[in-house]
């Protein structure tokens, strides 16, 4: 674990002493803030309209305006979409840069195991994602001053985001390990994540009774996230993300191992 810690510190230092992490955080907050502002004002407007209509009828609004579901859960989805673009930026250099500069041989001949190198880099990239998520706590915090929010769905939403990010980072690290070119690593990561994301669209355009659709549905990375965003922790969904992460890291170990051999 000590080796993991050393590599983690080195990678975190690289992230936060270069503009990379700040660029990612700034882009993330700009995009997410736009989503939040638009969604919140839309919610307030619709609620005001419904209240006005209800007053005219002399009864409470007959629509469900749940801020946790309609704003916070919506934001979790959007943060997931933003991650799709940001994670490749974070992970593309992790091994590709080492491959390109030739420092990978140095790293692999050090008295550290491959898995320790991978875990150190993985946890560092995941930590940057966690910092980005921490910034987004402003949204539920601000909303909690306006109305009563449900704590459970907020916690599960962040848990889901962390699991989603870990799967993304795992895939990103794998593609970074197989190439020397950072752009290629980033593009492959983005293409793969986009494919896993768009499986949800394929599910909706397919015959639901075919076995293929059932498979696509269970493999879709976004459909698995729905439960977390809504406040439901499903063991199968959590296992799916951990499996994707674990399998991607397992493949990365094999790639590094093949370089040694």
């Amino acid at each position: 674990m000590r080796n993991v810690w050393h590599i983690y510190r080195r990678e975190i230092g690289t992230f936060f002493t270069t503009p990379m992490a700040y660029v990612v955080m700034t882009l993330f907050t700009i995009i997410a803030n736009v989503f939040f502002y638009v969604r919140t004002t839309q919610f307030v407007q619709e609620y005001a309209n419904a209240t006005l209509m209800a007053q005219m009828r002399g009864m409470p609004p007959d629509m469900n305006f749940n801020a946790t579901e309609l704003i916070v859960a919506f934001m979790f989805y959007q943060m997931g979409v933003v991650l799709l673009f940001l994670v490749p930026m974070l992970t593309m250099r992790l091994f590709a840069e080492e491959n390109q500069m030739g420092t990978i041989e140095l790293l692999l001949t050090c008295p550290v195991r491959d898995i320790e190198v991978i875990l150190g880099k993985f946890l560092a990239a995941l930590s940057v994602c966690a910092v980005v998520f921490a910034i987004s706590i402003v949204y539920p915090l601000w909303l909690s001053f306006q109305t009563a929010l449900e704590t459970g769905p907020i916690l599960t939403g962040y848990l889901g985001l962390l699991l989603l990010a870990s799967a993304f980072v795992g895939i990103g690290i794998f593609f970074s390990s197989i190439t020397e070119n950072q752009i290629v690593a980033g593009a492959l990561t983005f293409a793969t994540l986009l494919f896993l994301w768009l499986l949800a669209a394929l599910v909706q355009t397919n015959t639901v009774e075919s076995g293929l659709t059932e498979f696509l549905s269970s493999a879709s990375i976004i459909l698995r996230f729905q439960n977390f965003a809504q406040g439901v922790v499903n063991l199968g969904d959590a296992l799916y993300y951990l499996s994707v992460t674990g399998f991607a890291l397992f493949l990365t170990v094999n790639v590094l191992d093949s370089k040694v051999h």
Partner: peptide
């Protein structure tokens, strides 16, 4: 049951 109503005004 459906969702909870926690609408608010700004």
């Amino acid at each position: 049951r459906d969702s909870l109503n926690t609408g608010f005004e700004l």
